[in-house]
C-alpha cells in the first residue's frame, strides 16, 4: 500500500473521449501545488486511463479509476472518489466546477457528509487547513470559506487559476473501487462536438469580443467575429443579442450566462445592464464602443468610444491588420 504525502491535495480530473484530460486540469493541479502535494484521481473510460498527462501537469502520484460501467452517469465517479479519499486521506479535494464536476462534488459530499466550497477562484492554506476563495455576485465581493472539520470539497471555476505546477516523475497505480450500486441515469449515446471554429472558447479566454443589440441583426453580428479573429479572441454576447437571435445562448456573458475574467473585454453595442456587467466586470481591461454616451457600460470601461460601431470597428480591424505587417 502506497504511503501518500501528509499534505496531499486530491485533484479529480476526467479523461475525455479523446484520451486527453479535461481542459480545467492544468489549473486544478496549479491550484493544488500551491497548498500541498497534488495527488491525481484520473476518471476514465475502460482502457483509456493514463497517468502520463497528470504527472506532466504536476501530480506526484496518480490513481487511475477506469469506470466499470461507462453508460452509468456519474455514480461510478462518486464511488471512485470515495475509494480514493479513503486511501489518500487528503487535506482537500479539488474538482472542476463543470457540470460533471458539480455532480461529483455534490453527490460525494452528500454521501460522506463533507463540506463543499463551491465555485472557488483560488485556494490558500492557513494554520487550520485549506481555504477556498470565491468571487460572488458577479465579482462585487470577495469571500473565503472552509470546512468546520475534515477535508473540504472545493470546486474550482474553469479558467480562474493561472498558476501551473511543475511536472513530476510518473508514479501511478490502479485504484480498486467497490461499486456502491446506487441508481444512475444511463448515457444512451454521445455525440462529440466538432470544433467548427478555431476561435478560443469563451470560458477561460484571455480576450473576449462581445456584441449586443447594437449590432442590429444576425448578419451584422458577423462584425463581432471579424474583430475577435483579428485579436485571437473568443466571441461573447449580451443577453439582448441572444434573445434577439443573433447568436446562440452558449455565447451569453452575464449573470445567467458565462462569467469571464479575461485580460481584455471589448463590448460592442452593449449598454451594460447590471445583469451583463455581473459576468464581465472582473476583466482586467474593458473597452466599450457604443453610440449612446450615457450607456452604463462606460462607467466601467477603461477605454470608451462614443460612436458608430459600424464605422469604428472596421477602422480598428484595418488599423490592427496594418500594424501586424
Amino acid at each position: 500500500m502506497t504511503d501518500f504525502p501528509r499534505d496531499a491535495i486530491l485533484v479529480v480530473v476526467e479523461a475525455q473521449a479523446s484520451g486527453e484530460l479535461e481542459k480545467a486540469a492544468p489549473g486544478l493541479f496549479g491550484a493544488a501545488a500551491a497548498v500541498g502535494t497534488p495527488v491525481a484521481l484520473v476518471l476514465a473510460a475502460p482502457g483509456a486511463g493514463s497517468a502520463a498527462e497528470a504527472a506532466v501537469l504536476g501530480a506526484a502520484h496518480v490513481l487511475i479509476a477506469e469506470t466499470p460501467d461507462p453508460s452509468a452517469l456519474g455514480v461510478p465517479s462518486v464511488d471512485a472518489l470515495a475509494a480514493a479519499v479513503e486511501q489518500v486521506q487528503p487535506d482537500a479535494i479539488l474538482i472542476s466546477h463543470s457540470l460533471n464536476g458539480r455532480d461529483l462534488a455534490g453527490r460525494y459530499a452528500a454521501r460522506s457528509r463533507a463540506a463543499i466550497s463551491a465555485d472557488a477562484i483560488g485556494v490558500s492554506r492557513d494554520d487550520e487547513g485549506v481555504v477556498a476563495h470565491h468571487s460572488v455576485y458577479g465579482g462585487a465581493y470577495n469571500v473565503t470559506s472552509t470546512s468546520t472539520f475534515g477535508a473540504p470539497v472545493i470546486t474550482v471555476r474553469q479558467g480562474s487559476v493561472d498558476a501551473r505546477a511543475t511536472a513530476q516523475p510518473q508514479a501511478s497505480e490502479t485504484l480498486a473501487v467497490t461499486p456502491s450500486g446506487k441508481p444512475a441515469a444511463r448515457i444512451d449515446s454521445f455525440e462529440e462536438a466538432v470544433a467548427a471554429t478555431s476561435r478560443p472558447e469563451l470560458r477561460g479566454a484571455a480576450k473576449v469580443v462581445a456584441g449586443g443589440r447594437g449590432l442590429g441583426s444576425e448578419e451584422q453580428f458577423a462584425l463581432v467575429g471579424q474583430l475577435a479573429d483579428t485579436l485571437g479572441a473568443a466571441v461573447g454576447a449580451s443577453r439582448a443579442a441572444v434573445d434577439a437571435g443573433y447568436i446562440p445562448q452558449s455565447h451569453q456573458v452575464g449573470q445567467t450566462g458565462v462569467s469571464v475574467s479575461s485580460q481584455l473585454y471589448i463590448a460592442l453595442g452593449i449598454s451594460g445592464a447590471i445583469q451583463h456587467r455581473a459576468g464581465m466586470q472582473t476583466a482586467k481591461t474593458i473597452v466599450a464602443i457604443n453610440k449612446d454616451s450615457d450607456a452604463p457600460i462606460f462607467e466601467i470601461a477603461d477605454y470608451g468610444v462614443v460612436g458608430d460601431l459600424f464605422k469604428v470597428v472596421p477602422q480598428l480591424i484595418s488599423a490592427l491588420e496594418a500594424r501586424k505587417k
Binding site: S135, N142, A283, L316
Partner: peptide
C-alpha cells in the same frame, strides 16, 4: 461537516478610464 464563511470584503468597482467621442479616427 459544514462550510463556513471566513471573510467577506467588497471589491472596489472597476473605475471608468478614458472616454472619447469618435471624430473619424477612433478606430485608429
Amino acid at each position: 461537516a459544514r462550510s463556513i464563511m471566513l471573510t467577506v470584503a467588497e471589491k472596489p468597482p472597476h473605475a471608468a478610464g478614458v472616454k472619447i467621442i469618435d471624430e473619424g479616427d477612433a478606430g485608429e
